[in-house]
Structure formats: C-alpha cells, structure tokens
Design a protein around this nucleic acid. Sequence first.
DNA 1: GTGGTCTAGACCACG
DNA 2: GTGGTCTAGACCACC
Lengths: 129, 129, 129, 129
Amino acid sequence: MFFTPNPHSGVPIYLQLIGQVKHAIETGALKPGEQLPGIRKVAEDLVINPNTVAKAYRELEHAGVIELQQGLGAFVAENASKRSDQIRRAQPALRGAIDRMVNLGLSEEQMRRLFESELIRLREDAGEV
Amino acid sequence: MFFTPNPHSGVPIYLQLIGQVKHAIETGALKPGEQLPGIRKVAEDLVINPNTVAKAYRELEHAGVIELQQGLGAFVAENASKRSDQIRRAQPALRGAIDRMVNLGLSEEQMRRLFESELIRLREDAGEV
Amino acid sequence: MFFTPNPHSGVPIYLQLIGQVKHAIETGALKPGEQLPGIRKVAEDLVINPNTVAKAYRELEHAGVIELQQGLGAFVAENASKRSDQIRRAQPALRGAIDRMVNLGLSEEQMRRLFESELIRLREDAGEV
Amino acid sequence: MFFTPNPHSGVPIYLQLIGQVKHAIETGALKPGEQLPGIRKVAEDLVINPNTVAKAYRELEHAGVIELQQGLGAFVAENASKRSDQIRRAQPALRGAIDRMVNLGLSEEQMRRLFESELIRLREDAGEV
DNA sequence: GTGGTCTAGACCACG
DNA sequence: GTGGTCTAGACCACC
C-alpha cells in the first residue's frame, strides 16, 4: 500500500497524505507522469472518508505537485521533480539513528518528541548566530 | 524560554506543549515536584491565549504527568515518569543524523517527512514479523 | 429536553451535565451506542456556550463514558457502564422521601442540605467501623 | 468535629461550610447565641486555608445567620432561628431512603445523581402545573 | 452537518 | 498571585 497516515500523531490526515506524496516524489519512489492511486481506492484502503483524500489531492494539485485529469486520475506533475538525491543520501544516517533509538527501547512518541526537540534546538542555534 | 511551539506545523499548539513538557520530564530537564511556569506567564511568553496553555496543563494533569493545585500552581507529579536515561543516550545519534541532513541542505519539512517515512517503515517491519 | 443544569447551585454547569449523562446511562435512559444530542443543539437548548457543553463531552470521553467522533457526533460507549437496575429499584424509596419533605414544606436548598448531612453521617459511620 | 466538607463534590468548600452551619441551625444542633469554632481551629482541623473559612463566616454574617465579634469569636445570631421542626420530622424518611440505596449498593455519587434528578423532576412537575 | 482549536476577555475560587 | 469557569465568536478538520 502507498499511504500510511497515523491517526494518533495529531497531524491532520490530509496533511500526512500530502507529506507522503511529496516525500515519495523527493525520493524518486514516484516519478513525473506516474499515476497516483484513485481517491476511492485510497479511501477504502485506509478506511477514511474520500473527501479527506480528495482534499489532499486538491491541495497537491494547487501546489503544482500533481495534476488531476477528469475521468483519468491523478498524475505526478512533469515539473514536480524537486527530487533530491540529497534526501536519499541522508537516509542511511537517519535510519542508523532510529535504529539506535529503537534499540534503546524508545517508543515512537518518545522518538518523535526527541526529534522535534532537536529541530527546535536547530532553530534556536540558527536564530542566535 | 521553556516552550517553543511551532504554529505552522499543523499540530495543535496545546499538543505541542504537552509533548514538550513530557520530553522535558523524560530528559530530566523537569524533575518531579518541580513547579511549572504559570499559565499566564507561558501564554504571555508565547503570545498565545491562556486558555490554550490551560488546556495543555489540564490534559497533562489528567494524564497523571503534572498536578494542578488551585491557587498554588502546576507541579510535576512525583510518579510522573520513568525519566529515561535511554533518551539522553539516544540523543547524540539523532543529533548526528540531523547534522548530516542539514549539511546536505534538507529543509526542516523534508527532514520531518523523511523521519516520518522511516517511522512508517519501522511500523511495517514490526507488523510483518 | 434532555439536560437541566441549575446555574445557581454552585456546581459548575459542565459537571452537572456530566452527572446527568452518567445518570441517564445508569438508569438506561441512554443506551450504549446511542447518539447524544450535538454540542450546538444542547448549547442552544440550554442557552449556554457550546464550549461549556464541549468541555462536558470531552471529560465524559476521557472518562470512557462516551465516544466523540469527528464529523459524526457523540455516542454512548459500548462498555460505558454497568447500567444499574439497582438505581431504578432505589428510585421509589427516594421519591417517597422527597415527597415527604415537600409536604413538610422544605425548600430545595433545605432538602439538599439535609441530604448532604445524611451522606456525611454515612461516611462517619463507615469510618468508625 | 463540626464541619465535613467534601472536596470532590464540585461544590466550593466555603459554600459547603455555609450550608452545614445553616443546616445545624435549622435542626437545632446549633442554638442562637452559641459560639462557633474559631476560624484558625476549623482551618487546622480541615487542613484548608483560613481564608476559606473566613469567607464562609463572612458570608454567613452578611446573611444575618451569625455575628462576628472582634476578638471574641463567631456566634449564632439570636434572630437566626429559622429552626424548623419540619426538617427533623423529615429526617427519618430521608434516612430510610438512603439506607435503601446503600443496601442496593449505590455509591455516594450515584445517590447524589439520583437525588438531583428527582429534584429536577420536582421542578419540572411544578413548572407544568 | 459534526466536533476541534484558538482567541479575547470577564469573573470566580482559593491560598 | 494561582488555576477554574464561562461567554462570544472565528475558523479549521472531517463525514
């Protein structure tokens, strides 16, 4: 399956879907021109309301990331490719850190909190320079 | 300052405050019995509404993390949490990964998306076992 | 109408609403799975602020008594409560006592004070055993 | 001891104290001219703030129920005697009903909810006449 | 339509 | 001073 939103993260589902599509494109998992799964199919698979999926697709179209073609489906925009090899190069480091956290027994929530606190530190460091 | 919610992250502010208090306790930055800053003070510092802070505090209380005492203030519960040295031990690894991502030029959004996608992979790996 | 809070009793309105929902469930007037009236409807009927109703519903949810579902409404939790036939069996006796007090000309306040003083005696009797 | 406020009933403590003094006078347990326990003593016994007791006494004085005499203490007002034999006559009936509820295993909370719901029914019956 | 979040601001209860 | 309750009203998320 393609999408895996987390209903307990506090982030609205449609925003999670948007993030996941963007991420898939950034990493090359989705290529320009490629077709996205249909709204109804996604909604059924995830047991959520089709409107929620539709809203995510609409915003993605509005952001120029995908193109919605009446009756045909949704496709990754040709010029959407902010695909970044940097991200794929960064992945191993992050995966290593996550493995470390998992081995230390941290819960997903704790990992997320630690991650966010480090991002905050980043912002503060940047601000102080 | 103590709290640093991000109003644009899509996560409700009060949930961010909750996460930050929990994280502060988990890392030992806040110790059992210690007093939290008053509702009005936090609200002023962050330029948000006192009700929003109050909501976070109230949910923390009902989660057993803090204790609210009329006329006295908010205090970290004595049995609040298994403050986790694991988290502090995990911190360097995560910080290293974030440094790597920053050096590769990733935006905060991209880092967050990558992080979430790795958490999803975790869940899937766990589910498949 | 469903709810009848008394704004002059000194007890916060939202606590009165909570008590009335619990009581309705305990007596079987509200059954598991049944939908509660919407927040706005209750607020309009009682001429109180929707936030006050929302607060009552939210606390009922976190007490496991009802379930709030985004976009759908509020429902009595399936495992909400041991609906208690005992309560219905107790009702006639209490009603008789209240009739007696009314006939003797007691005010509602006096009845409430007498009732509370008897509960105190109960607690003391229990404590002394 | 004289006062037994219940901190979990939702009713402010000072209101409970007021109610208990009034009730004691109504039933003759406190007679006109009789001295009430001192503010500090009550506060110590109940482990509450003296201000809370002082507030209760102040409101009772304002209501003409007691008289505060500087340096001497608080005394039941001579003309306070709304003492009502009706209340004492009503007591057995109520006590019987409460015994019945206790025997049926009702909790104090459930009894209070049932009592309040019957009072509501009273109000409604009166209104409809 | 539902509930959820947030704001602005008044007033109360309690220490 | 602290937290607690309530109001009025805007806007968002989801079905």
